[in-house]
Design a protein around this nucleic acid. Structure first.
Lengths: 343, 343
DNA sequence: GTTAGCACTCTCGCCCTTAGAGTGCTAATC
DNA sequence: GATTAGCACTCTAAGGGCGAGAGTGCTAAC
């Protein structure tokens, strides 16, 4: 990224923030009138022509003003923008939404966080539910439902509770079942879920066979309940907010975007892209790999429990996004969320 | 509803089915050319003028053809329409989607049903998850998670599994906890969930106090886990299908409809309206109470386990809906679903 | 009762025009 | 040499006029 003269920077910033707030191309007169510039519109015109040539600005048509290019936005986010403070009001809404009482389950806190983020940014938010595989095994129980079916309950250190109905092998007595479960609990305690692989299970199985006369089938329980499609939920909030943006007046665009919103797996991939970053990640336009959001900006951050990443949340809007405000908001929310989850 | 002459009925049917398939106003020439009519366009014009006066047809403007009014659609659905057979192909897709293996949990079957319905009708489907309150208590367990928290698992006769993390009263020993749980299981077995009221709980509490020295707090467990906001999930499928309809070219209309789609509670109310009907219910336009779907038709049916209604599913589309095909499809799907759930 | 014929109405798409905004270039100015 | 005033030029968006096309309602004939 070439260095821009002080003056070009000021003009670029002026065009971008103008465009962000009005959604209209910004002309040289408008920039010239901005206080702190002190140059005539003719000078501005020359500078703007330069900035266009350098790729920071675009002209929708000859007699329109300029709008930022993706490169322009990127420069703005990296060098020019001065992050606004999170307002007292927003801060209050966030801590209100994340009030701890009655929120024992991680999922609920996450949902509430996404809702408030969408409300205060007026954008669409995506949030990935806690990822099961990233947790550690805590305990497993089997509750018999009737003579042939049982409920497996699996609990992780991150408070994730997973249950599944399974067929119980007829030949297994309750006492034997109990023994198997105890053995597994003891062996697996604290192990990261993604390390509970089929090969580990096989190993345990061999070990157990030696010490305990138990049926092959008994082991299918654990395997079956873990192997389960690891389908992480993605929650959406404020999807209609994006329809208020002038960028989305076109029904075909809307159709494409909302079709994406229906594909949980694709949304997961989109969020997954920025997992494991420590900071807030901003993806502008074509920096997004998924083609249906190449005209959007996605601002994401990961939430954690005790330094361990659980999932990702993001704000989706047009590239003409209020970066000054949204980036600090996402940072503030995630910090707050991590503090709450980690105690 | 007045009686219509045989001829008027034929003309009305012709206009309606024409409009349903083309989304264009139908003119007298088009009707006259339809085989089986055998009248000149002039005669048709007279009859159509009558039908308009009687309220069955509308004219968008003087020189356009006619389109059906809500009254027209209603007459069509009640008297004229001849339900198409469900095609072999559709039947196959339905039974494919509802294949029983690996679908032990009701929720999964329901979801799969909604998905296939949306796919074969090319419309949006709404489906209410099984209603917890309509099930009967089967058993309750408490799993200690650590020294101060436990997991309550509640299982109903309809296979509904509900769990919730609660604080365990410190003063309660594991043995005592076990006793309480056993007592409750025994007393509540088979009781409809909506009869497990606070007053019943209080009664049990008094009874138990007499026989067992146990702390007040112990009872909060059950109460807390039942009193929980009874929030039934509504699942949506194929929401973008509705955007293919020419009726939804207007962004404001789309915004309104999708805003509704985000309000689970409102969707629940909409479906709840037709719960407990034995047959397929068709609500045309303003017959819907919710104002955001007054330009739509909603076709619903209830699904059941062993004759007990669990929830409602529906197809939502413009009033210009392919009634001939969708109504039999909904009926077929629900029948199939009920058979599967009931074994 | 039915139909052919015809004048009439309304929409839709097209073209043209005009107003307005903003540019780029040139020549004058600091 | 940098800045600015001035001006011709370009492009869009909005509005009006016009003709084609579709479909009607009415009348008079069958």
């Amino acid at each position: 990224m070439e260095a821009l003269s002080e003056r070009k920077q000021r003009i670029l910033e002026c065009v971008i923030s103008g465009y962000i707030s009005t959604a209209e191309p910004v002309g040289s007169r408008t920039v010239a009138r901005t206080k702190g510039i002190g140059l005539s519109s003719a000078t501005i015109r020359n500078e703007m022509a330069d900035l266009e040539e350098m790729g920071y600005l675009l002209q929708p048509h000859t007699s329109a003003g300029r709008i930022p290019s993706e490169k322009g936005y990127r420069y703005y986010v990296d060098y020019l923008m001065e992050a606004a403070d999170v307002s007292e009001e927003d801060r209050r809404m966030i801590s209100e939404a994340l009030k701890v009482e009655k929120m024992r389950e991680v999922e609920q806190v996450i949902l509430s966080a996404a809702r408030v983020l969408s409300a205060i940014t007026n954008q669409t938010t995506l949030i990935m539910g806690p990822q099961f595989q990233r947790s550690a095994f805590r305990q497993m129980r089997i509750l018999p439902l009737d003579h042939k079916r049982g409920l497996v309950v699996l609990i992780t250190d991150t408070g994730f509770i997973k249950n599944k109905v399974i067929d119980l092998p007829q030949s297994l007595s309750p006492a034997e079942l109990h023994q198997v479960v105890n053995y597994l609990n003891q062996k697996l305690y604290g192990l990261p879920i993604d390390q509970v692989t089929t090969s580990l299970i096989n190993e345990l199985k061999r070990d157990l066979f030696r010490r305990l006369e138990i049926l092959e089938q008994a082991f299918l329980l654990l395997e079956e309940s873990l192997k389960e499609e690891e389908h992480v939920r993605v929650y959406l909030n404020g999807t209609t907010n994006i329809l208020n943006q002038p960028e989305f007046k076109n029904v075909e665009k809307i159709r494409r975007l909302f079709a994406l919103f229906e594909q949980e797996e694709a949304l997961f991939q989109i969020l997954e892209d920025s997992t494991d970053s420590e900071e807030v990640v901003v993806r502008i336009g074509s920096e997004n790999t998924h083609e249906d959001i190449q005209e959007c900006t996605l601002i994401t951050a990961c939430y954690k429990i005790n330094r361990k990443t659980l999932g990702t949340m993001g704000v989706l809007g047009p590239t003409r996004m209020d970066y000054d405000r949204v980036i600090p908001l996402v940072r503030c929310l995630v910090d707050h969320l991590n503090r709450i989850l980690s105690n």
